[in-house]
């Protein structure tokens, strides 16, 4: 989940623990008041974050350099230019893939979350034959290496006319995104006391009203979480996009950057690729920042006396 930000924190915490193990020998006591250890901990966090952020910073730097200085090997650009950004937004090689990326990812997310919400709800609430099989099947699909189905999919899509279309990407994305979403959402639904729904029914709600007015609002953090997971999965995909598209018709940004052409045939479009990479990273960062609060569960506190 949200590998970009949370990853750094988790790694940071791990680093702190390592320092503790190998740090100077001190009597075990109150950690918070030990200046040495807390300083070490901070240094560790800084080191790990720097390590994780360096490639991102490098790409940011590249995207701001001019073609002449692109290979100078300096992190801080000598002069900052917005030329690369201007180029990608005017060349047409980037704008159309960006639209494809946004459209395909949003549609997939919407469909996946809606279907998964109903499926997960049934899984969390009902006991039906084959439930275990369904869940393990879903997990198996999510674990399946996508590369092994690319070949057959390519042939099938050519025949059915799905090749190089939006549905042609949305379908395989759904296949992998749905199990993820179902698992996440089922976990959230299970947290919601069944009594709430029954209370709603006694209060006069139809099963659907109970779902929409009580269960869904409470599962909202789960819905956001799974939506973000699915969106990031689609947004980051390179494999399907490069294999199942041939033109700008459906090609998404990760694949499209590989086809960037520079202003002259003799230079690599490195600066533009870097600018494109930065542009596609921004929505993810914004999304995670905006929804961070909502992702944090705890909305159900107070439903039942605990």
């Amino acid at each position: 989940m949200t590998a970009t930000t949370l990853g750094a924190e988790q790694v940071g915490a791990g680093g702190g623990r390592n320092l503790e193990a190998g740090g100077p020998r001190k009597p075990r006591g109150n950690r918070a008041t030990e200046p040495g250890r807390s300083l070490g901990w901070k240094l560790g966090v800084v080191a790990i974050v720097a390590y994780a952020m360096f490639p991102v910073l490098w790409i940011l730097s590249l995207s701001l350099k001019s073609d002449a200085t692109i290979a100078d090997g300096k992190l801080i650009p000598r002069e900052i230019t917005g030329q690369n950004y201007r180029d990608i937004f005017t060349s047409g090689e980037f704008v159309r893939p960006l639209i494809n990326s946004i459209g395909i990812s949003l549609i997939t997310t919407l469909i996946a979350v809606v279907i998964a919400a109903f499926a997960a709800y049934a899984i969390a609430r009902l006991d039906f034959p084959g439930k275990g099989l369904l869940l393990s099947g879903a997990l198996a699909i999510a674990m399946f290496p996508p590369v092994s189905i690319i070949g057959p999919l390519f042939d099938m899509w050519r025949v059915t006319g799905l090749y190089d279309t939006w549905p042609g990407l949305i379908l395989p994305y759904l296949t992998f995104a749905l199990p993820l979403a179902i698992w996440t959402l089922a976990a959230f639904f299970r947290e919601i006391p069944f009594d709430l729904e029954q209370a709603a029914q006694v209060d006069g709600a139809t099963p659907y009203q109970a779902f929409r007015k009580v269960i869904l609002p409470l599962a909202l953090p789960g819905v956001f979480t799974s939506a973000i997971i699915v969106f990031i999965f689609c947004w980051n995909d390179f494999l399907f996009s490069i294999s199942l598209t041939s033109t700008q018709n459906a090609r998404t940004v990760p694949a499209a950057t590989a086809f960037f052409t520079a202003s002259s045939n003799f230079v690599n479009p490195t600066g533009q690729i870097a600018a494109a990479a930065i542009v596609v990273t921004v929505p993810i960062i914004i999304m995670v920042l905006v929804f961070q609060r909502r992702i944090v569960a705890g909305l159900t506190a107070g439903a039942v006396k605990g």
Binding site: D195, A200, D203, T206, V214, P217, V304
Partner: peptide
């Protein structure tokens, strides 16, 4: 169905709707 029986039930764990205010909890039915 329960909704057509016009009965009111108080659950052991109260089953209040956590996302609604006290006012909306009571107004729900």
């Amino acid at each position: 169905a329960p909704k057509d029986r016009d009965l009111a039930m108080v659950f052991q764990n109260y089953a209040l709707y956590p996302h609604l205010s006290v006012r909306e909890n009571m107004a729900f039915p």
